[in-house]
């Protein structure tokens, strides 16, 4: 590298531009706001929530961009992203199915519902179906224990789910996706 022609090693502007390009407008606004906060790092988790909300997961490029713009070490961003269950580091399906395996759901047969989903979709927890339609996750209580067993598909909570209802439920979401595409 002795022939390197660039004497000016300050590439801050380039890096910043690249980082901005990797994120969306509303995320950039949130970062701007955070930078005005007395403790900018305190907004890291809410910014990562925004990134996941926009991209569906936390990609390496986005995490690096957040680290750069927020002036937080990239290792710290990765550390936070991997610590919390809610953050996904791989792209998820169109619909994320969260099967509640809290206590009430467990005693009311949540595990059997989970088995049926795994069987129907041919995937395990944390995996996405081949068509990219569904990602299967297990949740730790979504707080609707009175209606156990419950599952959450994106933000919709489905109550008192029985294993035999699973195929119809999946078909309904496949239809929904088809309609939305059309």
């Amino acid at each position: 590298m002795s022939h390197c022609a660039c004497h000016n090693t300050d590439n801050r502007e380039q890096v910043e531009a690249a980082s901005r390009a990797a994120l969306s407008e509303d995320i950039l606004r949130a970062i701007e706001e955070a930078r005005r906060d007395p403790e900018p790092g305190g907004r890291l988790i809410s910014i990562l929530h925004k990134v996941q909300g926009h991209f569906g997961y936390l990609g390496k490029e986005q995490m690096d961009a957040v680290a750069q713009l927020l002036q937080v070490p990239a290792a710290e961003v990765t550390g936070v992203a991997t610590f919390y269950h809610f953050f996904r580091l791989k792209p998820g399906g169109r619909y994320v199915i969260n099967i509640c395996l809290g206590t009430a759901c467990y005693v009311k047969g949540g595990a059997e519902v989970a088995e049926k989903f795994k069987e129907e979709l041919g995937i395990d927890f944390g995996e996405t179906s081949k068509d990219g339609m569904f990602t299967l996750e297990c949740a730790r209580c979504v707080g609707t224990c009175g209606l156990a067993p419950v599952i959450m598909i994106n933000e919709n909570v489905h109550a008192k789910v029985k294993p035999d209802e699973v195929p119809a439920l999946l078909a309904r979401y496949r239809d929904k996706a088809r309609q939305e595409q059309a």
Partner: peptide, 11 residues
Amino acid sequence: DEGDPGAFMDR
């Protein structure tokens, strides 16, 4: 951060 599975009064 009502994390206890089985508790939903805070929600």
